[in-house]
Amino acid sequence: MCVGVPMQVVSIDNNGSAITEMDGVRREASLMLLSDEVKVGDFVIVHAGFAISRLDEEDARETLALMREVFSVEDMA
């Protein structure tokens, strides 16, 4: 029930509402709960029709890169 899914913003209207998309599924999401500027192309976590948080793509890539680095120097038997 608390499920929040990452979705990408495809458009934003003047009423503070966005159309978001993931895997071809489109959902309207209110931006009422976000204070930071959201741009088309950004990823957000959508829960119950509201964007509740931004998903920092750069952070995600960094986390993955760090993990890969750690595992590449370890013997992954």
Partner: peptide
């Protein structure tokens, strides 16, 4: 960390 910050979502 790609979603959660120390201070959370202040506006919400």
């Amino acid at each position: 960390s790609r979603v959660v910050k120390w201070e959370g979502n202040k506006k919400a």
